[in-house]
Design a protein around this nucleic acid. Structure first.
Lengths: 205, 205, 205, 205
DNA sequence: CATGAATGAGACTTCATTCAT
DNA sequence: CATGAATGAAGTCTCATTCAT
């Protein structure tokens, strides 16, 4: 995935500038949308000329690629840790949601891009991993919900598939309004969100 | 004469072809994103040449404009009817959510566009009504939630603003997966969704 | 030169509308320039749709053609009358200038178009008569000036060719500011102009 | 960086290529008219592709802008020098005319463009300076002529306003036929022209 | 005679990308 | 590493023109 033109330097000497530019690019992509973002805008923000970006990256596409695959790689490391812990359904959902909001906290821009551009990009062969990830995603969440229903932890009268969609979307869309360092910590947001989804907003009678 | 200075929303005798094209355009915009959609793609889908679109519309921009303002106009007619009925907080939320899903059913494409492109477009003066609408939107939902808390219908331990965001997003994001004529009627989806949000997915103990 | 699609009506029944439209077109061409004038603008001014113009005329080009050839036809009728009268050089110049300003008074728009678009249009085969006219033009004026020098009516120390150019341009450029029905009659303008060119603006010492 | 927000007239270190292209563009604009000149034609003449022009310039419009404002800037520097010298009316007219023909000699293309396109372009806000310049222009010439009449240097029986128009037009229209390096130097043309305007072409009796 | 709708060529412009320096 | 200049494909839009009704 790294640039093919790059000198074969060892990982010991990490190209500082590279990830710096990537972070800038992510921010701009998130703010303006991938298509609407010109390579020049990224370069401007990075303090260089458009052409100079091509020393570091193959193409605009490979920038988002790196941004998204980086984010998904990290996300799955956390998700897998949760899933491998074989907690109960409710606790699994809680952990997944919490990790999701933490990821939004760490990689807000990447998540926003993922949320907005996933569908377009998935059409390109190079981004097949987006679809793969979504499949795994669905399996994990849907499976947990179903397990919860089977174990009488979640209500049986709900359409599991529908519930999955609601939950999935709400978590990720949060990336569009979340601002790191704001009033709420990711854990606090997760708690509030879980409270709503698990127990409802209505007062119990 | 059909072009230039035509009121974007209404017309005494709506030229058949116009709304036909608009529906097609909405579909393509929703599927590919506004920026990524070329005028030629719309024309192709409408069975005409790109240039011919400009007999009916001033610009690509004015097409989305008409799509979005049409959708918002209709939406607010329904919302206002609900709000004017002065129901209780829970019933108001139920009615708003139901109307929202109905609107998704009727104007899926428009809602999807609204969801995805709102932020970019709102930067243009011509689309200021998007921001205005969002403000009214927030006032209506937030107000109802707050009233519910005051009247002990909704839980007091939830952050109302956060809850508003969760609810708002989830409803509209549904436009990205909803397919009219699918398994669930909008009313059924609303019921499921309300059940989750109001009472939670966890089994009561 | 008339439209080939026109019903073969006799000249006895002159198509009123035709010359009406032509006058409007001339006005717009003069104001905006031939290239910058769209066929729709002419149609607007004539109270019809762009397509409808093509019932009366073959093309935008044939409109200017008719405007210019009509103007030049009339102009040469007058010029020829003057030249055939075989006046003295000074009187000939006076008469030509006077007729020119009269023509500007009658066909201001056509003259302005001639002045501005002549060069472009002359490149097209159909407008060769523009070049022909200019040649005849030069012959008439230059000849008169030379005759005047030979007969000691005009100063011998002036470059005749240069003088011709100055005189020619000044007369026609007047079309760009002249407004029929203004303060000065064409004859008055001609008198002022001739006074300047023939006797100079300096006080004689 | 050469693009966007660059002062249209001056630059400390004028990029070679830029003014080269500008000179070519001026030539083409003058020959074919601004509207009729395609950006591709300019690019062809400059030996590049149409799109490449946009590295140097914002738009076709900003090219004429730079051409015209450059020309007017230089012209006014000369005119101001003349006016500040506070010569007599006749000498002032002589100096202004001479400077004008010199300017035509230096910037023939720009003058021709100014002459032909001034009116259209002045409608655009960006070209308001054209109107401003024309106002100053009128003030300078008209004022000098009036002073001349008051001082009995110019004939009192001439309409000053009309004379101003004749003189103004004739000088500038010369740009449409003048060829630098031709038979006559600008000074020679000015002398001939002044001789005609000041003393007339008729032999004194 | 005129309308309404469309065509098709071509205009200006944008932008990712390349490459010599 | 970065710049400056250019490429070439593609995009939005304009406009003269046509034609069935």
């Amino acid at each position: 995935m790294p640039n093919k033109n790059k000198p074969p330097a060892a990982a010991a000497a990490p190209p500082e500038r590279r990830s710096e530019i990537l972070a800038i690019a992510a921010e701009v992509f998130a703010a303006q949308g991938y298509n609407a973002t010109t390579v020049r805008r990224i370069a401007d923000a990075a303090g260089m000329l458009a052409g100079s970006l091509y020393y570091h990256f193959d193409s605009k596409e490979s920038m988002v690629d790196e941004i998204l695959s980086g984010f998904l790689g990290e996300l799955w490391a956390r998700y897998d840790a949760v899933l491998d812990a074989r907690l109960g359904p409710r606790e699994t959902i809680e952990a997944l949601v919490t990790e999701s909001f933490r990821e939004i906290d760490r990689h807000r821009a990447a998540v926003a891009i993922y949320q907005k551009e996933s569908r377009h990009l998935a059409a390109l062969p190079r981004f097949r991993y987006l679809t793969d990830s979504q499949t795994r995603f669905e399996r994990a969440w849907l499976g947990t919900l179903e397990r919860g229903v089977a174990e009488h932890v979640f209500r049986a009268d709900l359409d599991v598939r529908l519930t999955y969609r609601f939950v999935r979307d709400t978590v990720w869309v949060a990336a569009s309004w979340y601002r790191p360092g704001g009033l709420h910590s990711p854990e606090e947001i997760a708690r509030q969100y879980l409270s709503m989804v698990l127990d409802g907003i209505a007062v119990r009678t």
